[in-house]
Amino acid sequence: MLKLKNINKTYQTDKIETIALNDINLTVNKGEFISIMGPSGCGKSTLLNIIGLLDKPSSGEISISDQQITSYQDKVVASLRNKKIGFIFQSFHLINDLRVIDNVELPLLYRDISAKERRSLALAALERVGLSARTTHFPSQLSGGQQQRVAIARAIVGKPALLLADEPTGNLDSHMGNEIMKILESLHQDDGTTIVMVTHDEEEAKRTQRIVRVYDGQLVAATEQPLHLDATA
């Protein structure tokens, strides 16, 4: 499903070169649910951004769904992000001016499908996260947990091969965080969705099949069920 080979990421400022990721090798199988852990600033979000094609590695190879990424042209990565990847962000990133249903439809706007089909898929996604009664609400009218459920519906509406969650419970209390985790688990178990989740929470990480630990830009360990960890530094 996802293969990272010798991924490096460096940031060049005027005089200093900062190494954000150093020779990362990682394989995530189809249907797997893994978590990435590590201290703040260790590079886990950079890693997630590179997996999500939001950022370009300085060197190395990425394959998603057996398709190697050879071009980072705007049009190419936009299409890949649209069709293969769904994002869930810590701060939800819903568009406050749009209703819930319009927020969920957003990824489908960039596909060649009819308005009717968009609406039907968006309703199905909202039903999947238990929010079919809130379609015409605006994000500001919802609780944090509900907003994150809308964000999950938006992430899954296009049936992406890979779901990337960047600290999805980070802005929620433990009760709501637990609800979000249940939805993610359900998406994994019932729908076979492949999920990569960045988290700070050890308990949540333990609910995933595998924990990948990042320290100073390097993968340092994999725990629980180390199915396909290729390399550690």
């Binding site: 999500g52 939001l54 705007d74 049009k75 936009a78 299409s79 992000r81 649209n82 069709k83 994002f87 990133h93 819903l94 568009i95 957003l106 990824p107 706007l109 960039y110 596909r111 938006r154 296009g158």
Partner: peptide
């Protein structure tokens, strides 16, 4: 910018 980031993340091209 957040909206721009979200739209890009979900597949909008610069042209769109």
């Amino acid at each position: 910018s957040s909206e721009i980031g979200v739209r890009k993340a979900f597949g909008a091209t610069s042209r769109q």
